[in-house]
Amino acid sequence: MKTAAELKEIAQFIAEYATRLMGSGVHTSRVVRNSKRLGEALGVRVIVSAFQKVVTFSVCDDDSGEVYSEVADIPPLPISFELNAELSALSWEAYDRQMPLPEIRARYAEIVARPRLDPIFTLILVGLANASFCRLFGGDWFAVSIVFTATLLGFFLRQRMQARGFNHYVIFIASSFAASMYASVALMFDTTSEVALATSVLYLIPGVPLINGVIDIVEGHVLNGIARLTSALMLIICIAIGLSCTLMIVKNGLL
């Protein structure tokens, strides 16, 4: 038996937990499963319904028949695989060891407070990644070095604009334009300039929502899946717009 206050406390914690997962780019069925498991660990039944921007759910105590419902906004957080892995593990640990709520809450706070990867470190890794991508597509070493620097420029711009809170779409258009425009200097030299141009914007591809969208649809969360794919498609269109601006300017050099 839970008192109404206990039930409310559990519901609020699960709301925080589920919206954090949704916001960090976890596919819907995993969020639902983890929340139910966490509820089971705390002795309640959880029924979740998740949308793109909001999560609603009910927490039921089957012994007393008491039900508490909660609606919570999903915050727009950066994608984090670390939270995905650690918070999923937390739900299993709570379930297996029957952890009490204060202990789960403390562990949760500790996991959420962990720092993300260093932005400079990420920047260099992304530059190297896009450069090897260029190599995979058959670019020569000169094109590879151009793509490396173009990606550094584009991704740095993206990081700065994100920190300033610019609109998503504006960020994607601007950084795809900047990276491809820089990569178009390859046209002036005798190199695989087409490969350089094509790969310079690929670091922007929203792979996580694309794949999550497909998983959601196959697992029956069709609405969420389509919403994810639509937002991924919007970002891809933005990449194409930025690239198009460059191509319109330099297209005579490509023919």
Partner: peptide, 23 residues
């Protein structure tokens, strides 16, 4: 070399999404 460059690319693109170090 194909495998090597794919591995570097995956690590870099993965880093954008902040995976745990052990991954």
């Amino acid at each position: 070399s194909d495998g090597f460059f794919a591995a570097v690319a995956a690590i870099g693109f993965g880093a954008i999404s902040d995976p745990p170090m052990r991954a």
